[in-house]
């Protein structure tokens, strides 16, 4: 790790001010991704603002009948919460599909959203990567690492977002609450948080410099079934090679794009009366596999259809 300084603020305002005061600052919450990347010098913050003890660790009912998950709620805390388990089972399943018990005890809601790709060439710092070094090129393109994007990739980047939790949140139409360095607050849809790579894959979210996520707000649970299913190379403690979240006819796909992939075409097809297989086919018609990741077409078609069938979506309701 490169040397850095460290501070622990007492509240959100102080955290924002501390980060604004030092160029190259980063917020540190659970650290399960940031510290990992700092060890490899993929992340090189000059200053860490430890937000893990900010009073943002509550799970609260919203006036609308949903839940507000504070930014520093841990993944374990959210997945163990009875309100979440009863009303948002897809979210609990998604969180419990990810990482390990130990990691979930540290990883936070906001940190999970902001985790970076697991692309093998991003992690191998001897290879060119436009995320690590804009303009360097992309070793994944033309490489043999297969857990890459089939939707929305660019000539600069074919990496995927590795989160399970975020996929379920996308299907649940979650909102992200954000605080800025000058005291301003705003809320955006989760779908608007993550970006496609385009020509600037190093810019992964729509957060502005100095902004921090303060909460994720879940709207009231949609009518209909929910599920999260994940395919991976071993039974546990492995990143997805493809995943599907369904919540009341809303569909999101994981490990297929630079962001949790909201399957709008599938949703539209379902609304138009398509069956699950037809809905997935509609979504996948715009996929662009690269020869190495073609298996994801069959995987997502089958897994998606199975999830839709299980939840009763697409059976003509």
């Amino acid at each position: 790790m490169k040397p850095f300084t460290y501070e622990r603020p007492a509240d959100v305002a102080e955290a924002l001010a501390m980060a604004a005061a030092v160029p190259g600052s980063r917020f540190l919450a659970g650290g399960t991704n940031l510290v990992d990347l700092m060890k490899l010098q993929i992340e090189q913050p000059t200053h860490l603002v430890d937000v893990s003890r900010l009073p943002l660790a509550e799970i609260a009912e919203t006036a609308e009948g949903g839940l507000r998950l504070g930014a520093t709620t841990t993944n374990s805390q959210v997945a163990a919460d009875m309100k979440v388990r009863a009303r948002y089972p897809a979210l609990a399943q998604a969180i419990l599909s990810g990482a390990s018990g130990q990691l979930r005890n540290k990883a936070t809601t906001a940190g999970n959203l902001l985790q970076r790709t697991r692309c093998a060439y991003f992690y191998d710092t001897t290879k060119p990567c436009n995320k690590r070094q804009p303009g360097a090129g992309c070793a994944a393109i033309g490489g043999i690492y297969a857990n890459t994007a089939i939707f929305g990739s660019s000539e600069a980047c074919i990496a995927t977002h590795p989160s399970d939790m975020a996929v379920a949140m996308s299907a649940l139409d979650a909102q992200v609450e954000i605080a800025g360095p000058n005291g301003q607050e705003r809320a955006i849809s989760l779908e608007a948080l993550h970006r496609l790579p385009g020509e600037t894959p190093h810019i992964e979210t729509s957060l502005q410099p100095g902004e921090m996520i303060t909460a994720v707000v879940l709207p009231p649970p949609p009518p209909g079934g929910q599920i999260y299913r994940k395919a991976r190379e071993r039974a546990s403690y492995a990143f997805a090679i493809g995943s599907v979240a369904v919540a009341g006819g809303k569909v999101a796909l994981g490990a297929v794009a630079h962001k949790p992939w909201r399957a709008r075409a599938a949703e539209q097809a379902l609304a138009d009366g398509a069956n699950p297989a037809e809905a997935m086919a509609a979504e996948l018609s715009s996929a662009k596999p690269d020869g190495h990741n073609d298996f994801k077409l069959k995987l997502m078609a089958r897994l998606g259809a199975a999830c839709l069938t299980t939840t009763g979506a697409g059976d003509g309701q």
Partner: peptide, 27 residues
């Protein structure tokens, strides 16, 4: 592994298990 990928460093902090390798001591 030093990267949260094996669990050999698991310790209990305030009763909860965590990977000590991915946690800065000053925190």
């Amino acid at each position: 592994c030093d990267h949260g990928q094996c669990g050999a460093c698991t310790v209990l902090v305030n009763g909860q298990r965590i990977n000590a390798c991915l946690s800065l001591a000053v925190t």
